[in-house]
Design a protein around this nucleic acid. Structure first.
Ligand code: FES
Ligand code: FES
Lengths: 144, 144
DNA sequence: TACTCACATGATTTAGAAAACATGATTTAT
DNA sequence: ATAAATCATGTTTTCTAAATCATGTGAGTA
């Protein structure tokens, strides 16, 4: 569904949202531990997210990553688009070069509806939403 | 969503269903051309499908692949399970090692519904169904 | 029987994603 | 100013899916 990078990115964003505020930054080590992701790989992903302005970063001692109010308004879809591009939006499930109504694969119209709800899901859920959810302690970013 | 192998497998099954009957077998070359798949790779996949009894094969001159009435009753889900296993059924969208209600990731419950309709789609559509669809000439297994 | 056609099987190679490494740049604290 | 912390950047390695190659096996035909 999503690339490994994208999975990590989503988890990292939710993790940082949870742990950070204006004064408290979160470092790569903590992020990778909290999300069960390889540290160096996660570092790379965080740089991407930062370059694409989905998250803020501060260098030096006591530096790290954090999110401000506007960062929290980003949806999962924004992260997915930043990391995986628009494959979710444009790819054919059966691997045709282009997915279109003019040259539809046999499952195109059935899949269309599913794709619609998938997109709705990632577009309607903001980081802030997950923030609240996680506060309940009923959701996890890694296995216990 | 599906592995490349699985995409090819689905297309091949639909293609053979279309082109074959008791007397007319379809060869690897024709299948790979008709589905835009690499010949040798497709050969491998066809062997898998044949070993798993999803399709029939005949060696020698005028040999090839064909499907009988009971083969046509297989669903897309049967193909997916044969090639990709149960990843669609059991994997977590955010990559947690196990997807469960006890240790759900933040999107688990939202995704659950989508997964349900996805599974419904692949389980409710048999090869025979697609056969009829393709007859209308409105569906394609490769780009024009 | 001998020859050829077409699928079967296993080994090998390729390509791209995932992960790790090495080095550079910026900030804070002393 | 110096040193340590931490993110940034580019390169290299590893791993696996994808694709290819080489060879084997059974069936048909003359
Ligand atoms: S053409 Fe296959 S999903 Fe649209
Ligand atoms: S735990 Fe992530 S989808 Fe179920």
């Amino acid at each position: 569904m999503f690339s490994k990078s994208c999975e990590y990115a989503i988890k990292a964003m939710i993790f940082v949202a949870q742990k950070s505020n204006a004064d408290t930054r979160v470092g790569i080590k903590e992020i990778s531990k909290g999300t069960d992701a390889p540290e160096h790989f996660m570092a790379k992903i965080m740089q991407d997210l930062s370059r694409r302005k989905l998250i803020h970063s501060v260098k030096g001692p006591n530096g790290g990553f954090y999110m401000d109010a506007s960062d929290l308004k980003n949806s999962i879809a924004d992260i997915v688009k930043a990391i995986d591009g628009d494959v979710i939006y444009s790819d054919c499930v059966l691997g045709l070069k282009v997915c279109s109504e003019k040259n539809p694969c046999p499952v195109h119209f059935e899949y269309k509806e599913i794709k619609k709800s998938l997109i709705k899901m990632i577009e309607n859920n903001t980081i802030a939403d997950f923030n609240e959810k996680l506060d309940t302690g009923m959701y996890f970013l890694k296995n216990k």
